[in-house]
């Protein structure tokens, strides 16, 4: 589904990603872990098409197609979803209003008929229950005055509505208390199928107790230096990142 080959990317002339390689197949959950400044959020941003980042070399294929040439909206229409680390507040724009347009632009791109209002309302009602989000939040301005937990839940809600093939959760666990974390994780788990995949970007192992990864990768100095299974996350939780830093210090650029 997703092939990242030797990806190097920079922002304002600082190269952050120094050759990332990753392969994600349908049905898989991958966790990308690493200390602060290792390039986790950069990787998520580059995949979603944030324009401040410049790709210097390498390749990203999504279902065999070059992803890097696509606009952020076309990536979304092909089925990539980024759950933001810091979801923005947009006064005057209601979640339901913009989601209806988003869903229909995605459908149009994929040669599907637009979803009518009745089906749309039914669809979002179902998804609201999934992430236990209240109707009143839906009619309010997008994220405006939302608590940190409400914002993250709203991200997962939107993910549920748009039904992406590949979801990238960028530090979705940060700022969540344990109850909110369970709701978010529960939402993600219910959406999992053999056809879609999830990349969980996180600093801590905590979220991975609830969203169990098939693979765990450690990003360090802009490179994936170690990959393993969920046990690797537990080891990191216990020992921290220092031992990996020491182990790879000589090889990291």
């Amino acid at each position: 589904m997703l092939h990242i080959k030797d990806l190097k990317a920079s922002i304002e002339d600082n190269q952050i990603l120094n050759g990332v390689n990753l392969e994600v197949k349908p049905g898989e959950v991958h966790a990308i872990m690493g200390p602060n400044g290792s390039g986790k959020s950069t990787l998520a941003s580059v995949l979603a098409g944030r324009e401040e980042y410049e790709v210097n070399s390498g390749e990203v294929l999504f279902e065999g197609e070059d992803l890097l040439d696509l606009s952020p909206e076309d990536r979304a229409r092909k089925g990539i979803f980024l759950a933001f680390q810091y979801p923005v507040e947009i006064p005057g724009v209601s979640t339901t209003n913009f989601l209806k347009s988003a869903i229909n632009q995605i459908r149009e791109y994929n040669d599907l008929k637009p979803m009518d209002s009745v089906h749309f309302l039914k669809h979002i009602k179902e998804k609201m229950q999934l992430v236990e989000i209240d109707q009143s939040l839906m009619s309010r301005s997008l994220n405006e005055g939302f608590s940190g937990g409400e914002k993250k839940r709203n991200e997962i809600f939107q993910m549920a509505v748009l039904e992406p093939k590949l979801a990238i959760l960028d530090e979705t666990d940060s700022g969540l208390d344990i109850d909110a974390l369970k709701i978010v994780a529960n939402g993600v788990n219910k959406l999992k199928s053999k056809d879609n995949a999830v990349i969980v970007v996180t600093h801590y192992q905590r979220l991975l107790n609830y969203i169990v990864p098939d693979y765990v990768h450690v990003l360090l100095g802009g490179r994936i230096v170690k990959s393993g299974t969920k046990e690797l996350a537990l080891e990191l939780e216990e020992k921290g990142y220092d031992w990996i830093k020491e182990e790879y210090n000589t090889t990291a650029v």
Binding site: R50, E51, E73, G92, F98, A102, Y109, L162
Partner: peptide, 25 residues
């Protein structure tokens, strides 16, 4: 706001409609 614009685009809205939505608001 570029961040707002990117947010809306990352959900599948093209740049023109995302801009229109922000100006409308």
């Amino acid at each position: 706001d570029e961040e707002q614009l990117f947010y809306l685009r990352s959900r599948g809205l093209d740049k023109d409609s995302a801009t229109a939505l922000l100006l409308h608001a």
